[in-house]
Amino acid sequence: MSWSARRMLPALAGIAVVLGGCGDSSTEPGGETEVISRVTLTLTPPAGAALSAFIDDADGNGPGAPSAQQGALALARNTTYTGTIRFENRLENPPEDITTEVQAEANEHRVFYTVSGAGVTVTATDTDGQGRPLGLRFTTAVGATPAAGTITVVLCHYDNVAKPASATSCTAETDINVAFNYTIAN
C-alpha cells in the first residue's frame, strides 16, 4: 500500500501541469441582428404642419418596455393625410435607417395598418416591384365625427411563404407590432 502511495503523489502533481491552454474564453460584440428601436409615423395634411409621433425601445432586444408614444396624432375632421412610416435603429451611432432596407426588399415586406376606433381609413399607396401593396407610403382619410382610437402598425416579413397579392393581416413573420393612439378633434 505504501509503495503505491509514494509513487502516486508525484504522478498526481505531474498531471496537474497538463492543465491550461486552449480554453480562451471571450465574448465578441454582436451587432448584426436586425434591431428596430424606433418607429415614427408621420401624417402630412394637404395644408399646414405635419403631425409626427414615434415610439422608442431604448433597450432594443432587452426586456425593458418601449416608451410611451411621443407626439400626439390629433387629426382634423374631413381631411386626407399623406402618411409615411419610418423604422430606425438608434442604438447604432449614427442611427441606421431600416426603412431603406424594407424598400430594397419590397417584394418580401408589407406594412399593415389596423385601425381600432372610428373615423380613420388607411390605404397603402405604394407597391413593390410586382405591383403588390407595400405600405411605406399611405393615405389616412379622416371622417366627419370626433373619435379616438389606435392605428396598429405591423411590419410583415415574407421569408418562406410567398407574399400574397392582397391580404388584410400578416401571415408570415412579424418584425414590428406597435400601436399609435390618435384623436379626431371636434
Binding site: 500500500m1 503505491s4 502516486m8 504522478a11 498526481l12 498531471i15 496537474a16 497538463v18 492543465l19 491550461g20 491552454g21 486552449c22 480554453g23 480562451d24 474564453s25 448584426e32 441582428t33 436586425e34 432596407e101 421569408d159 418562406n160 413573420e173 418584425d175
Partner: peptide, 29 residues
Amino acid sequence: NHGALRFRNVPAFDLRLFTNTVDARWRHA
C-alpha cells in the same frame, strides 16, 4: 431564420466551448 442574417451564411449563435479535464483514479487493492 430572422432578420438580416437569414440570407447570409453567418450564424446567429456561434459558441465554442473548450474543456480540459484531468482525472486520476486509484482503484485500491
